[in-house]
């Protein structure tokens, strides 16, 4: 559908959404665009300060170096989705309770909604977009497809990252059902796909060992 029309659902909303939003903003409510904190330069000792306005941030996203200007009160989740347009990572509870926003930070699964963007300065972040390579789904993603490990799909990108974290830290080890269950205990799936997720991860672990 989207190919034929030359337009995507997200692209359409993005176009009309921001224009409408900015039109409705009083100038004082617009996000600040400069760092004008005098304290940042005048800090004592070795202490450094960031913000409150947007400040430069560099990190690695799915193997690629990224530099952007982001304010300290922006979460990693918001920066990924709204600034870098990596929308594979989902917003659900935004309070660290559901796991839909799980990403790997230096290989460790973390809730990107409870992480500030500036927390990942210099770190390597992997999102669901980083799993496939060369247009080919990863072993884990293929196992998800084969085992019907998703239904509505909203938890899937986070679920995949928790499972990817497990596979990376247990590489070469034999996994038990309990290992997978423990690894996904922070990922809520309202469709109840858990048994199929467990089967998919066990298959992927067997296949890559």
């Amino acid at each position: 559908m989207s190919d034929r029309a030359g337009i995507t659902r997200r692209g359409l909303f993005r176009g009309i959404g921001t224009a409408g939003l900015l039109a409705g903003c009083k100038p004082s409510e617009r996000p600040p665009t400069t760092t004008d904190d005098p304290g940042a330069a005048a800090s004592p000792g070795e202490e450094t300060a960031v913000g409150p306005g947007p400040a430069p941030l560099s990190f690695t996203l799915n193997g690629e170096a990224k530099t952007l200007e982001v304010a300290p009160n922006i979460t990693l989740l918001a920066a990924l989705r709204e600034q870098l347009r990596f929308t594979g990572t989902k917003v659900v509870c935004d309070r660290g309770a559901c796991g839909a926003c799980t990403v790997l930070i230096d290989g460790v699964p973390r809730n990107s909604c409870m992480t500030l963007a500036h927390d990942v300065a210099g770190a390597a972040v992997t999102t669901v977009e980083g799993l496939a390579s060369g247009g080919k789904l990863s072993v884990l993603q293929q196992a998800f497809v084969r085992n019907d490990a998703l239904q509505c799909g909203f938890c899937t990108s986070g679920m995949l990252m928790s499972c990817q974290g497990l596979l990376e830290r247990t590489r070469g080890q034999k996994l038990a059902r309990e290992d997978v269950e423990a690894a996904i205990a922070g990922n809520l799936c309202r469709c109840g796909t858990y048994p199929n997720v467990v089967a998919a991860v066990l298959e992927a672990a067997g296949g890559s060992a």
């Binding site: 600040p32 904190d37 070795e46 202490e47 450094t48 960031v50 913000g51 409150p52 300290p72």
Partner: peptide, 8 residues
């Protein structure tokens, strides 16, 4: 908005 201070 807030400032992130990073003392050593």
């Amino acid at each position: 908005p807030f400032v992130l201070s990073r003392p050593k």
